[in-house]
Design a protein around this nucleic acid. Sequence first.
DNA 1: TTTGTATCCTACTAATCCGATAGGATAATA
DNA 2: TATTATCCTATCGGATTAGTAGGATACAAA
Lengths: 147, 147
Amino acid sequence: MKLNTKTRYGLRAIIEIAMNSSEHGVLQKDIAQTQNISNKYLDQIIAELKSADLIVNTGGKKSGYKLNGDPKKITAYTVFKAFNSSLQLIDCLSNNECCKTKLCAAQQFWCGLNDHIITYLQSKTLHDLVQEQSKIQKNNDLVMFYI
Amino acid sequence: MKLNTKTRYGLRAIIEIAMNSSEHGVLQKDIAQTQNISNKYLDQIIAELKSADLIVNTGGKKSGYKLNGDPKKITAYTVFKAFNSSLQLIDCLSNNECCKTKLCAAQQFWCGLNDHIITYLQSKTLHDLVQEQSKIQKNNDLVMFYI
DNA sequence: TTTGTATCCTACTAATCCGATAGGATAATA
DNA sequence: TATTATCCTATCGGATTAGTAGGATACAAA
């Protein structure tokens, strides 16, 4: 069970965009630099965020990206789905061969885990993450100041 | 994010063993049949359960497998670890490059998900699963009776 | 208008992982 | 002795994935 890198990078990227959405927007190449991701690879990640309508490029090429919508309404699950279509820990969750008919305790158990994970992903909004991130950064600045 | 089949099959197999541990034990080939898993493939799964000390083959070849220990003390996480060494949704959880130093909100978030999943896995014991399974089977029998 | 630069879009590749099969050794039972 | 179940290792095809590459497009500054 592993999270793919696109989801990881994607969340980091959209947090950075969300943190600067009030201003002019963020350039892709700047994200690549601060997040230390190959700009070419970020190409694909940005593209997926855009096609999921999570970000917009407001004024042409050099205007930078902004969040498309209220950060309090965009959850981590929304971001997750932009890169994973949906969460299915085990295949038989999609067809109705099991789980729905509740054939065995094991599958019920994995179904429960699936729901559990989705609930967690839905519980955090981009607004929450932005707040946490700025707290972290303030802390870092403080430490830097004392050193 | 996917669960591998060994973990899926493994849990189903150990539930079946746990359900018959009081009696004579369960033969591998019988598990293969009832769970509809290739017996050759089950070879590997049983081997991993054994090397994790979760099951034992008490009296030689034809005696069948039994649970090694109290089903109330064996959690789903224990079974999971027999097939996955440990849960690390993202790589940097293992090295201390992040998460411990709390560099970014995204990684804290994934850490949290990781813990969340482990908590869920630890919350269910084999005893719970056995009870659920027998309830399901009783229900099925009842339905069969009325048909 | 030209040049540079950022985004956009598609294809590709190398590597890794994974599910499953195969073959044969070992040991217990009949 | 013959059979059968477990044990053990090797292998293979396929799928996925992280990341690279190349070039098209479009905008802005010179």
